[in-house]
Write a protein that binds this DNA or RNA. Structure first.
Lengths: 140, 140
DNA sequence: ACCGTAGTCTACCGATCAGCTAATTAACCC
DNA sequence: GGGTTAATTAGCTGATCGGTAGACTACGGT
């Protein structure tokens, strides 16, 4: 997985790891301190693994202090993730507006059906006209 | 994976799926229209699979129109993800401030070392005092 | 020098994931 | 009915993931 954004989202796609981040939000902590709340359900090497995932995602920085490995939160990668989401802000707000939703659904459905029907008719319009256009590669 | 937030993040942790969402941002599209840009690198069933992931994550809604399956974007689940991230906003802004970072790193390190040393000393303070506290279960 | 504590490393296991091919369903058109 | 297009399903791979147990490293205290 060479892609930073993918690594970030993937690291966040686990409740244990999110809990670890939440704990680090309250300040630095060692591995065993982080592991504490989970030791009933998980072993220490398990937590170490999760930490490594967070580390290679750049979300956690592990330093050393004698036999301890104090971990700190690094929210830097979250910025990219937040920036990505920002593009969908309009749609998030729209998804609350039920009436507007319904109306735009109707009009979209009609125009889309019309477009398809005309394509199926005599004129051999290439579908590619409707296809990739604004797909902005680096905000994907 | 019973957890909604995990499913959302996990669905976003793939560039192909993010590209599909980006395309849907510009309006409704059928499966083949969505598959178009990827057919050089991936087969149609592959795209169908990705769509199902997005669908079960609630990010895409598939309707039917004769033999076509028009898909629409549903940003609703992104709201929860955005809300989760919002908690880290402070840390994102802080991670830009290099000087403040360095200073707080120093002070945190010192106080943390002190705390550990005092724990290792005579008084058998239980670590649990420092542990789960504010870990707010449903914002994790 | 020895013991305890903190943490990591190395397999190993079962489950899930991403991708493919090939076959199948469902609808339309002639 | 027969052919075409749209899309899904089934079944198979190989890779990755989450987790474990057990051996190992590194450091501090006595």
């Amino acid at each position: 997985m060479p892609d930073t954004l993918s690594r970030t989202f993937s690291a966040l796609a686990d409740p244990t790891r999110r809990a670890i981040l939440a704990r680090l939000r309250t300040g630095e902590a060692t591995v065993s301190e982080l592991a504490g709340p989970f030791l009933g359900q998980m072993t220490l090497p398990g937590v170490t693994k999760h930490l490594k995932v967070l580390e290679t995602a750049g979300l956690v920085t592990k330093t050393r202090d004698a036999q301890w490995r104090p971990c700190t939160l690094n929210a830097e990668p979250l910025k990219d993730a937040a920036a990505w989401m920002e593009e969908y802000r309009v749609h998030m707000e729209a998804s609350l507006d039920r009436l507007g939703d319904y109306l735009s659904m109707l009009t979209n459905a009609n125009s889309a059906t019309a477009a398809r029907n005309s394509t199926n008719a005599a004129i051999p319009v290439e579908r590619t006209t409707t296809t990739p256009d604004t797909t902005d590669a680096d905000t994907v």
